[in-house]
Simulated assay, not measured.
Amino acid sequence: MVSLPEELEAREAAARRRVEELRTEATELALRLEAAQKDLSRWEITRETVTEVLAELSAAEPDSDADVPVESDPKPHPHGTGVVMVPPWREGLAAKMLPDVYRDIMEVLADAPGPLQAKQIVPRIGLSATAGKIEGTRAKLKRLVERGWLTSDAPGRFALARREASPDPLNPRWPRGSSS
Rank of each mutant, 00 (worst) to 15 (best):
P74L: 06
R18C: 11
H77G: 09
R47P: 05
R143I: 08
P169E: 00
R23C: 08
S72V: 15
L22R: 10
V101Q: 15
R11S: 08
R163V: 06
E135M: 11
A10Y: 11
G114H: 05
E91L: 00
R162V: 14
R17S: 11
L40S: 10
E28V: 04
R17M: 13
R90Y: 12
R124C: 04
E71M: 11
P175S: 02
S178D: 06
A60N: 01
A131W: 02
Q120V: 03
E107M: 13
E107T: 14
L57A: 12
P172E: 09
A139C: 04
A94T: 13
D73K: 07
A110V: 06
P74W: 01
A13T: 08
H79W: 13
T130D: 05
P62N: 02
A154D: 13
A165S: 14
A15T: 06
E52S: 10
E71N: 12
S41V: 01
E71H: 13
R103L: 13
A26I: 11
D63F: 05
R42L: 14
A95T: 02
L4R: 13
L150A: 08
E61R: 03
A159R: 09
P5E: 10
P169T: 03
V101P: 04
M106P: 03
L127I: 00
A30P: 00
P69S: 01
R176Q: 11
A129R: 15
D73Y: 02
P175R: 06
T137G: 05
T130Y: 09
L22D: 06
P172H: 02
S179N: 07
D39I: 03
E28Y: 04
A35W: 03
S178K: 01
V70L: 15
R47G: 02
V70C: 07
P155E: 15
A112P: 05
L33D: 12
A131S: 14
Q117G: 14
P172F: 02
A131P: 01
R17K: 10
R42Q: 13
S3L: 02
A165L: 09
E48S: 14
R176K: 14
R16D: 13
A139G: 02
A15I: 10
E25V: 00
R162D: 15
